[in-house]
Amino acid sequence: MENFWLIILGLGIGTFLIRFSFVGFSHRFHITPDWKELFSYIPACLFPALIVPGLFFDQGQVQWLWGKEKLIVALLALGVSALTRSILWTLGSGLLVLYILR
């Protein structure tokens, strides 16, 4: 693979600069309470997009759940997560239920 090292270097530097962008200049601007409040919504704005599409469009194997077993198990796990606030319980119960269903 020609150019491999140049591409990796470019990709590495560029990705670092994206990550560094706001952090690097954070001391230059005053983060007002308004911005802080807006930033506090970033998890709620971003994480669902990491979670939902993959579950929604998953074509699973369990026929009596129309192949939507991941979506249904995830909703159960959401309940577990809200009750226990524990990643271990959420992961453990979610993975176990999906394993049993399949």
């Binding site: 998890p43 709620a44 994480f47 990491l50 979670i51 959401l78 992961l91 979610g94």
Partner: peptide, 15 residues
């Protein structure tokens, strides 16, 4: 189905 752990862990980090 360990790939399922990714959405599950993001969910429990979001809550």
């Amino acid at each position: 189905n360990l790939d399922f752990a990714i959405p599950l862990s993001f969910m429990s980090l979001l809550v």
